[in-house]
Design a protein around this nucleic acid. Structure first.
Lengths: 348, 348
DNA sequence: CTCAAAATGAGTTGCGCACCTCAAAACGCC
DNA sequence: GGCGTTTTGAGGTGCGCAACTCATTTTGAG
C-alpha cells in the first residue's frame, strides 16, 4: 500500500506556457519586479498556485551566483550559553560552506543600548542578507532593528526578543513559561514539606531574569501559597558573590527546602549548598546545561536543569534567516525552541 | 569586531588544477568510480582536504537530474503517535517538492515479522534511494534490512530500532532512559509519602514497552526501594481494557500513590482515576503528547507526559536519509531525539 | 620491445533558474 | 490619429556539477 505525497516536476517554462506568457514575465512576477499589469500578475500567480509549483531551490541557489552573508551579533564576555551557540555555529561550517553561506560573528556589548544600536546601524549599511541579534529591548535598539529591516535585510532576534520592533522572527523561549516551569517543579518536588523557598538571580534589570522571576512567583502564589518565598537575592551571575549570598542565607534560615537560581553562578550556589551539607535536603533548580550543571545533576546536588537547546537555537536562526532570504515558508514547528526539563535520567 | 567563519568559493576546476589532474579524474575520485591509480586518488583527496573544499550542494543536486525517492514504512492502524509523524511529513510537502524529493508511505503490519520482512524485500528491488522503517526487531526483518542496505539503499530505523542490522542510522529515543526518567519522576513527585506504585503497559512483548519497564524498575529498585511496586498490568494499549484493569486495581489497593502508563490507553486510565475520585492524590505519568494528554495535563489529572517529538522524528528521518544519499556528514547533535518531560507549564 | 589493459585528459551536454538586454506590441492620453 | 509610456516577448548567458564519450598516454606483463 503506497501513497504519493510529493508531486510532479514542473518548471518555470511549463508555468509560462500554461499562463500564456513568456518566461521573462513569470520571472518578473516571481520576484515582484515592476512592469507587469496587475491582471497578468494574477493570472501567473493563479497558474503557480493551481499547479502547486515550487521553484527548484537548488537551481535558484545556483543561478543566484553570489553567496549569502549572515551576521550574528553576540555578546562579549564568557557567558557559557552564548559560547555554546557560537560553538554550534562552528560545527555547522561544512554544512554552511557546502551551501555557500557565510556566517560572521559581530561581538559587541549587547547590554549597552547605545553600543548595540551603533553596531546594528553599522550592519544596516553593509552587504549582509540577514542578521541574528541577541537584543536588549530598548528604544534605540528597536529603531536600529527597524532600520535594518527597512534596508531589506532579514532580522531574527536570538535568545532575547524585541517584540515591539519589526524583526521578522524570534528564536528563543518564553521566559515567563520557563519561570513557571521552575516554580511548578520546586513546588512539586518539595512534596508535603513546609518551609522556605530561596530565589537568586543575576539582576532584576535583565529582561529574561525578570520574566522568569515573574513566572516563578505567579505559580508559587497560585498553587503553592503555603510555601514561604524569601526576598530575591541578586548574585550578578557571579559564582563568588552567589556563593556568599547563599551561604549567609542558609545560615540564617535552617528551614529552606527549595532554591531556584534564575541566572548563572550555579557553581557558586552549589558550593554553598554542599559546604553547608544541605545539598541533599534542598530542592535545587537552575538553568542551562553545561559540563558543570551536568556534573551537578549526576551528583544529585542539582535536581533539575531547565534549558533551551543552544544547538537548536543556532541552527534554527540560520535556517530561519535562509528561509526568509529565499522567501520560503518557515517550518514554524521545527524552529520553535522548547523549554527542556533535564534531570539525571534524560540527559542528552 | 568581526570574525570569519566560512571560507572561499573554490570549484572542482580549482581542485583539478591544483592537483594537476583533469576534471574527469576529480569527478572519478569524488564518486569512487574506478579507473584511478591509488596514488592519484590520494593526491586529489589531499588537495580537497587541504582546501576544505565542499562541492556546491545546489549545483550537485541540479546536475543530478532525477529526483530522490524515499519510502516510509509505517504501521497500519490508528496509533496517534504514528499518525502525527505522517501528519508532519505532510506538512513538509512544500519543502520536499522544492527540493525535488518524493516521500512515499508504505503502510504495512509492522508487528508481524514476516509481513514486514516481505514489504521490505519488495522495497529492496525498487527504485528508492532511502527507506525509513518502524522496525520490529526480528531475524527476518534484520535480514531484509541488510538486503536493502546491500542494494545501496540508505536505511534508517524510526522510533523502534534493529541495532543488530546494518541500518545506517536510528532516529528515536533510548526507551530504557525514558523508563528511568518516568521512575525518577514518580519517585520524586510522591515525595515523603509511602504507598504502592502501579504500572500498566500495552504488552511486555513490545520491545519499547519492555525497555521502558526495565528502566522504570531499575530506578525504583535502586533509588526508591521503600516504594512497593505492584505487578505489571497489560492493557493492550486499549482504553476500555486499561480502564477496567485500573478501576479494579484502585478498588483493591486504597494506598496507591503513583501510576505509570507505559504505552497507550491513557484516556482509559485517566477515566478510571477520576471516576474513583483519586486523580489528584495519585501521581500519574504517561507517554506522548496528544490533544488528550494535553488536556489531562492542564486538568491536573496527568502530572507529567514523557514524549518524543514526532515532528522532529519525521524531519530528522528525512534529513538523515538525504544526507546519507548525498554522502554528506550528518549533524548528529541535530538529529538526536530527546526525551521530553512535559508538564503543564512547559507545554509547547 | 610489443601489446593489451589501465589510467587519464579533453571535451560536451544539460539540469532550472536569475538576471540581463533589446525590440515589439499594447496601452492611455490628448 | 499620433505620441510617449507601459507591458510583454524572445533570447542569451552562466552558475557548478554529474555523467557521459572518446582519444591519448602510461603502465606492466610477457
Amino acid at each position: 500500500m503506497v501513497e504519493e505525497t510529493a508531486s510532479a516536476a514542473l518548471t518555470l517554462k511549463d508555468i509560462a506556457r500554461e499562463a500564456g506568457v513568456s518566461l521573462a514575465t513569470v520571472d518578473r512576477v516571481l520576484h515582484n519586479r515592476p512592469g507587469v499589469r496587475p491582471d497578468t500578475v494574477r493570472r501567473v500567480q493563479e497558474t503557480i498556485a493551481r499547479n502547486a509549483f515550487q521553484p527548484h531551490v537548488a537551481a535558484a541557489e545556483l543561478a543566484r551566483g553570489r553567496a549569502r552573508r549572515f551576521a550574528f551579533v553576540m555578546p562579549t564576555g564568557a557567558n557559557p550559553f552564548m559560547l555554546q551557540i557560537q560553538a554550534y555555529l562552528g560545527e555547522m561550517s561544512a554544512w554552511l560552506s557546502a551551501r555557500r553561506l557565510a556566517v560572521e560573528m559581530v561581538i559587541t556589548d549587547v547590554f549597552d543600548p547605545s553600543v548595540l544600536a551603533a553596531s546594528l546601524e553599522e550592519l544596516a549599511g553593509s552587504e549582509y542578507d540577514g542578521v541574528a541579534v541577541v537584543a536588549l529591548d530598548h528604544p534605540s535598539v528597536r529603531a536600529a532593528i527597524n532600520d535594518i529591516v527597512d534596508r531589506g535585510i532579514k532580522v531574527v532576534t536570538l535568545v532575547s526578543d524585541v517584540p515591539s520592533s519589526r524583526r521578522h522572527h524570534y528564536v528563543g523561549i518564553d521566559n515567563i513559561a520557563a519561570g513557571r516551569t521552575a516554580g511548578a517543579l520546586v513546588g512539586r518536588l518539595v512534596g508535603q514539606r513546609s518551609g522556605k523557598i530561596a530565589i537568586i538571580a543575576g539582576s532584576q534589570g535583565l529582561r529574561d531574569h525578570a520574566e522568569r522571576i515573574f513566572g516563578f512567583n505567579q505559580v508559587m502564589a497560585s498553587e503553592f501559597s503555603h510555601l514561604d518565598i524569601l526576598p530575591l537575592l541578586e548574585g550578578r551571575d557571579e559564582d563568588d558573590r552567589s556563593q556568599q549570598l547563599i551561604s549567609r542565607l542558609l545560615g540564617k534560615h535552617p528551614d529552606i527546602i527549595g532554591l531556584y537560581n534564575v541566572g548563572a553562578g550555579t557553581q557558586g550556589v552549589a558550593t554553598a549548598l554542599t559546604e553547608a551539607g544541605r545539598d541533599k535536603q534542598i530542592v535545587f533548580i537552575a538553568h542551562d546545561l553545561t559540563a558543570m550543571t551536568r556534573r551537578l545533576l549526576l551528583q544529585g546536588t542539582l535536581d533539575v536543569a531547565i534549558s533551551q537547546n543552544p544547538g537548536h537555537e543556532a541552527r534554527a536562526a540560520v535556517r530561519v534567516l535562509l528561509s526568509l532570504a529565499r522567501n520560503e515558508p518557515i517550518l514554524s514547528e521545527q524552529e520553535k525552541i522548547r523549554i527542556d526539563i533535564l534531570m539525571r535520567d534524560n540527559l542528552p
